[in-house]
Design a protein around this nucleic acid. Structure first.
Lengths: 207, 207
DNA sequence: TTATTAAAATGAACAGTGTTTATTAAATTT
DNA sequence: AAATTTAATAAACACTGTTCATTTTAATAA
C-alpha cells in the first residue's frame, strides 16, 4: 500500500513544516510572537489544522526545546573535547553562559518555561537532554575530584548543581536586566569576574 | 479649598484600592490571573477606569514589585540582625532562598519579569530596592574580607554577585521544576547542600 | 434652585491569544 | 460514479491590554 506510506510521509512533512515555521518565528521575532495563529499563517494552513498535528502549544514548545538542546550541544562541542576535567568545566561554563546570553528565547524554552515541561509530565518522559547535561557535568566533577582530592566540595552532584545554579543565575540576571542596574554596561565584566571567582573557589589548586 | 483636598484624597484612595485588589489577586491566584479586567472587577470599576490612575499594567506591576521588596525585607529582618558578617551572609542567603521558594509570584516580579523594569526605564528611576540589597550584600562581603583577609575571591562586589547568582539560580531552577527532574523530591536537600558548599568555598576558615 | 461647566467613569471597539466543534472540501475506496 | 473516509477550515468561546467617544456624576456660576 504505497498510499498509506505517502500519507504517513505527508503527515510527517507537515508536522515538520509547522515546527520549521515555529522555529523561524522564534528566531526572528522571539517567544511572544510565536503564536499558533502566526505559525498557521506562515505555514499557510488554518490555526485549527495545527491541532491535527500537535496536541497543543506545549507540545510544539517541547519539540522546540529539544531542538534547542541540539543547538546548545553544538555550541558546546569544543568545550566537551577538552581533556583536562577542570579546564573542561570552565569551558563548559563559559559556553553555557555564552549560549544563554546569545539565545535568550531558546534558553528560556530549555531552562525557564513551564510550558514544555507540562508536556513532559503528560508523556511521563523525563527531561532527557537537560538531565543528560547535568549527569555529564556531574561525571566531569567526579573526574576532577578523583584527579585532585582536595576540593572544598566533595560531592560531585552538589558541585555540578552549584556550577549550574551559578551560570543559570548569571544568565537569568543578565536576561532580566538586573545586572545593568547593579553596574551599567559592565554585565560582561561582572560575569567574567564571577566565572573566574567560581573556578578559583571550587578548584583552588588549578589556576 | 477643602474640596480639592478631598478629591486628591479620594484619588489616592482609589489608586490604593486598585493596588490592594491587584495584590490580593496576585497572592490568591498568581501572576497570570492578575489581569486589568480582573482587578477592575474586584475593585468594582470598569477596566478603562484603571487607566485613569495608572499609565499601564507595567506601572501596577512596578508598584507591586516595590511592595514585594517590602515583604522580602521583612522576611530577612532576622538575617540582617546577625552580627558576624559571614554568618549574616549565610542567613541572608537562606532567607533569600526561602522567600523565593515560598513566594514565586512576588519573586518573579522582583527578579525576573521585564514588565516592571519597563516602567523604571520610562521614569529614569533606578531599581532602588534591588540595588540597595546588592549594595548591602557587597558591604557585608567587604566586612567579611576585612575581618579575615584570606578569601578565594577578594573583590566584594564579585563576591556579592557570585552569591546572588547562586541563590537566584537555585530559586529559578526550583521554580522551573528543573531540579525535580535532576533528583526527584530532593529539591530541599539539593539546595541545602549547595548553600552549604557555597559558604564552605567562599569562607573556607569559617565552618 | 437651576443652568453650565468641569471631572470622572464607562461601553464598545481593536487587535490579539489558545482551543474546540460543527461543517465543508478533498481524497480514497467500493 | 457513488459512498465513505480523511483532512482542512470557519466560526465561536473566553480571554488579554489598551484607547476613545460617550455618558454619568459632581462642582461651580448664574
Amino acid at each position: 500500500m504505497g498510499i498509506t506510506e505517502r500519507k504517513e510521509r505527508e503527515k510527517q512533512e507537515l508536522k515538520e513544516l509547522i515546527l520549521l515555521k515555529a522555529k523561524e518565528i522564534l528566531m526572528r521575532e522571539g517567544q511572544e510572537k510565536m503564536s499558533i495563529r502566526r505559525i498557521a499563517q506562515e505555514a499557510e494552513y488554518s490555526p485549527a489544522t495545527i491541532y491535527l498535528y500537535f496536541q497543543d502549544k506545549d507540545e510544539i514548545l517541547h519539540e522546540l526545546m529539544e531542538m534547542g538542546f541540539g543547538l546548545m550541544n553544538k555550541h558546546m562541542d569544543a568545550a566537551f573535547a577538552e581533556e583536562n576535567p577542570v579546564m573542561r568545566i570552565r569551558k563548559i561554563g563559559e559556553a553555557y553562559v555564552d549560549f544563554g546570553l546569545k539565545h535568550k528565547d531558546w534558553y528560556d524554552l530549555m531552562f525557564v518555561s513551564q510550558q514544555p515541561m507540562n508536556h513532559i509530565e503528560r508523556c511521563k518522559e523525563q527531561w532527557g537532554h537537560g538531565l543528560g547535561l547535568f549527569e555529564y557535568l556531574s561525571a566531569t566533577c567526579a573526574e576532577a575530584v578523583a584527579g585532585h582530592g582536595d576540593m572544598p566540595i566533595s560531592e560531585p552532584r552538589i558541585m555540578a548543581l552549584t556550577l549550574w545554579a551559578h551560570v543559570h543565575g548569571l544568565v537569568m540576571l543578565a536576561h532580566a536586566q538586573r545586572l545593568d542596574v547593579v553596574e551599567k554596561e559592565q554585565t560582561q565584566r561582572l560575569i567574567a569576574g564571577a566565572m573566574d571567582g567560581m573556578m578559583h573557589m571550587m578548584f583552588p589548586y588549578h589556576n
